[in-house]
Amino acid sequence: PTMQNNQPVEFNHAINYVNKIKNRFQGQPDIYKSFLEILHTYQKEQRNAKEAGGNYTPALTEQEVYAQVARLFKNQEDLLSEFGQFLPDA
């Protein structure tokens, strides 16, 4: 029951956050696109690691994801700190 109650919260938070980024970078679609690419690379690496059952180290660590997003979101401290709330082990 706890998981069912928490999942929509995380989902809504993610929707709001993606929306906020889209709006913030409306005039700079490349930044938004790069952000999506970082997320997809991270997800792909996580999936590879999971499928390899511990025999594969993801090429993109959480720290690297954070660093890449920090470079992308420079001068947008609020977006970056909110991103930190999603990232495991940040």
């Binding site: 928490n6 999942q7 989902f11 993610a14 993606v18 997809h40 997800q43 999603f86």
Partner: peptide, 26 residues
């Protein structure tokens, strides 16, 4: 507005699964 493309939706999916993982490991 919530005018989401499939790419947006997958970003939402990745972010929410990251948040779940974060909660599971804390």
């Amino acid at each position: 507005s919530y005018d989401f493309t499939p790419m947006d939706s997958s970003a939402v999916y990745v972010l929410s699964s990251m948040a779940r993982q974060r909660r599971a490991s804390s």
